[in-house]
Amino acid sequence: MPLYSCNALPGAIDDAAKPKIAADITRIHCDVTGAPPIFVHAFFFEDAPHQPLDDSKAFLFGSIRAGRTDDQKAQIADQMRQSIHTHAGIPLEDIKVITQDTPAKWVLEGGEIMPEPGEEAEWLKRHHRSESGD
């Protein structure tokens, strides 16, 4: 957690663009929130029924830990929309980005309930993991 799930029209985001967008998603989330990269998952789908596109060509849905400010969420949405536009060439108006708060205490990762935002250092220390997961 966070989990960023990106659904798009078939072929709208090619395989070369996906790692670039995933790297941007990871960097943007960590820059804005201070979370470690090891927590950031970015999954790409095409025409996936579990995440309807409606009128968009790409829809990025981020399930993020609760506790982020409205300003942080707006920065995440704006910068990630720009990344998809830059790497996939999809017009900005055809890209939808939404985040949803998930309480950290609802989530088990690494065999332990996730830390609240800002309390990651002790969690990582207990798990002998670096922020990048190496």
């Binding site: 996906k18 995933a22 990871t26 998952h41 999954f43 790409f44 996936a48 997961g133």
Partner: peptide
């Protein structure tokens, strides 16, 4: 739900994670 090949990333690297 199956993430298509080369479509999953964790910490910017190919993902082996399940949710």
């Amino acid at each position: 739900v199956t993430v298509p090949a080369a479509g999953g990333f964790t910490a910017s690297k190919p993902s082996t994670s399940s949710i």
